[in-house]
Structure formats: structure tokens, C-alpha cells
């Protein structure tokens, strides 16, 4: 079965999921521009890495399952991979920023909490 033979409801559902996910990711990227300080901006990309990613991947899994005529859950692995890696990247980046800000005595640096 190819994409043209897809039932109409499935096509609309896939498109709705992909568009919703893309809008969430775009909102996250917009936050990167609109929010004022670095610590506020770090929150923005998580929108794309959580809900945006989940919506787009479920759309992809639904579409590929319909096309191939069996359950294709492979794209879920991208989701698991992103869920595990996003905290590591953001945590390291936030710590590096905190270290630099404290070292340089910037305003808005996080409060000291021992050597940690």
C-alpha cells in the first residue's frame, strides 16, 4: 500500500499530529528569541524535545504503520533516545553557565550552594 491509498481520516490525523508537533517546536524556538535571560531561554527548547517530538513521532509511527500494513514502532526509539539525552545536555549547559556567571560575578547568577 502506498501513501495515496491511505484512508482519509488517517491522512488528516497524521497531518494534524505533524502540524501540532511542528507548532510546539516552533514556539520553543520562538522562546529562544523572546525570553530575556539565559536561564529563561534554557527552558524553551525543551518544548520541542518533549511534546513536539512526541507528537511528530506518533504521526510518523502512525503513517509508517498504515503504509506498511503492520505495527512500526521504530521511531519510538528516537523518542527514548531524546528523553534520555536532553536532561544531560541541558544540565551540563546550565551548570557551565552557572559556573561562568559565578566566576565572573554576573548579576542574575545562581546562588552559591557549597562546592557541589
Amino acid at each position: 500500500m502506498n501513501a495515496a491509498a491511505l484512508p482519509a481520516w488517517a491522512a488528516w490525523l497524521v497531518v494534524a499530529l505533524a502540524l501540532a508537533g511542528a507548532s510546539v517546536s516552533l514556539t520553543g524556538a520562538l522562546g529562544l528569541i523572546r525570553l530575556r535571560s539565559f536561564y529563561e531561554r534554557v527552558h524553551a527548547p525543551t518544548l520541542g524535545a518533549t511534546l513536539g517530538m512526541a507528537l511528530i513521532l506518533s504521526g510518523s509511527m502512525l503513517l509508517l504503520s498504515m503504509i506498511e500494513g503492520r505495527l512500526v514502532l521504530r521511531d519510538g526509539l528516537i523518542g527514548i533516545f531524546l528523553t534520555v539525552t536532553t536532561p544531560v545536555t541541558l544540565l551540563l549547559l546550565a551548570r557551565a553557565a552557572a559556573y561562568r556567571d559565578r566566576h565572573e560575578g554576573q548579576a542574575g547568577a545562581p546562588p552559591e550552594m557549597g562546592d557541589g
Partner: peptide, 23 residues
Amino acid sequence: TGTPGTLWVQYDSDTGRLLLHVL
């Protein structure tokens, strides 16, 4: 991290204190 709006900044394993940034 999976719930946007909260960000894990630092954890001190001696005192068990977690520094969190909230939007």
C-alpha cells in the same frame, strides 16, 4: 527536564540540596 518550566541546575550530593530554576 521533561516538564518544561523547571530546570535542574545543580545537585549537592553531600547536603542533598537541589538547585532548580523555574520559569
